[in-house]
């Protein structure tokens, strides 16, 4: 951006999951609108797919884009990031956006760096907030050192590129009366695709990042057995089971359940941490839950410092009592 009021083009890279647009895209559009409304610029979006039409592209307009670049080509069924990077890089060269926002998902984290390197520009990873300062420049805020500090980062080159975490920005309401321009682009495939999918994609059973209620267990469970108890409570509450790292390392539960620095970042309405001490690496993944309940036998466990409710005691006594109470209340009401 050249300065306040002088405009600037913000480009949001849409992510498709199967046929659907991933919600992080709408969140980025929400933030993008906030930026362009402040600077007087324009909000753009780009979508790459092997089966996207104008109707899908219009969704991006309903959520805030003024202009959408639509790439619809069979090459985008490839799992080779180079295909996307090549076309996004070309788009940047031709259209010259000032800011590019990409979801900090597996797709975005793989795509962003290639485009940044190709355009020889800066890329800030995992932003949790973006602001425009008094000079009209973008400030990118990201956690560093396992969330102990927040770094405010600026970029000297154009475009300024950021990957932004899922569930930290707010999408605007879908507004079907919004109008915008859809520009169809032709894809370029200028290299050999040596990456081949063997067999079918293996879908994951659990999407913990989107879960509303999580009952998580840690080393304090003592054995794999404990997860059965947590599973009972989780299913009563319509939630899923989470884990700290040690139970995953010890093979008590699958990796998909791991919350934290080397697992998933979650933001549920309710997080119940059982037998989890609350290491920085674990807190990194769950401290933004709406409500946190901690159950731990050690009153000095750090998890109590971030919880809303804490019960000091043995989880093997407390969880069955909770299960019993919930059942009793439900049958009492029903």
């Amino acid at each position: 951006m050249e300065g306040k009021g002088s405009g600037g083009k913000v480009l949001v890279v849409a992510e498709l999951r199967g046929e659907a647009i991933h919600p992080v895209t709408f969140e980025l559009l929400g933030k993008g609108r906030e930026i362009v409304e402040h600077t007087g610029g324009e909000l753009w979006s780009v979508v790459f797919g092997s089966n996207v039409d104008k109707a899908k592209a219009s969704e991006l307009i309903y959520y805030g884009a003024d202009r959408v670049f639509l790439f619809n080509d069979p090459v985008f069924s490839s799992l080779n990031t180079m295909v996307y990077a090549h076309n996004l890089t070309r788009l940047c060269r031709e259209e010259k956006p000032d800011i590019i926002l990409i979801g900090a998902t597996c797709f975005g984290r793989s795509l962003g760096p290639r485009v940044a390197a190709a355009r020889e520009t800066g890329l800030t990873a995992d932003c949790i907030d973006l602001r425009i300062d008094e000079n009209g420049e973008l400030i990118q805020i990201r956690p560093a050192f396992v969330g102990n500090i927040l770094a405010y980062i600026k970029t000297k080159t154009k475009p300024v590129m950021s990957t932004v975490r899922y569930k930290v920005m707010r999408a605007r309401e879908k507004d079907k009366s919004r109008s915008g321009l859809i520009i169809e682009k032709t894809a370029e495939k200028s290299f050999q695709d040596r990456i081949r999918l063997v067999g079918e994609a293996i879908p994951k059973k659990l999407n913990i990042a989107d879960a509303e209620i999580i009952v998580a267990g840690g080393r304090g469970l003592g054995s794999a057995e404990g997860f059965r108890l947590l599973g009972e409570l989780a299913s009563l509450l319509g939630g899923v089971v989470g884990s700290s790292r040690p139970p995953v390392d010890d093979g008590w539960i699958r990796k998909e359940h791991q919350v934290g620095y080397s697992g998933s970042i979650v933001k549920p309405r309710l997080y119940i941490a059982c037998g989890i001490s609350g290491s920085p690496q674990h807190l990194f993944g769950m401290k933004d839950a709406e409500t946190i309940i901690a159950i731990n036998s050690d009153p000095s466990a750090p998890i109590f410092r971030v919880a809303d409710y804490g019960i000091v005691g043995d989880l093997y006594q407390i969880i069955p009592l909770m299960v019993k109470e919930i059942k009793a209340r439900r049958s009492g009401l029903g």
């Binding site: 520009t121 400030i139 560093a144 927040l150 770094a151 405010y152 980062i153 600026k154 970029t155 000297k156």
Partner: peptide
């Protein structure tokens, strides 16, 4: 191209 403007 990127630089840390401040740390909090």
């Amino acid at each position: 191209p990127t630089w840390v403007h401040k740390v909090v």
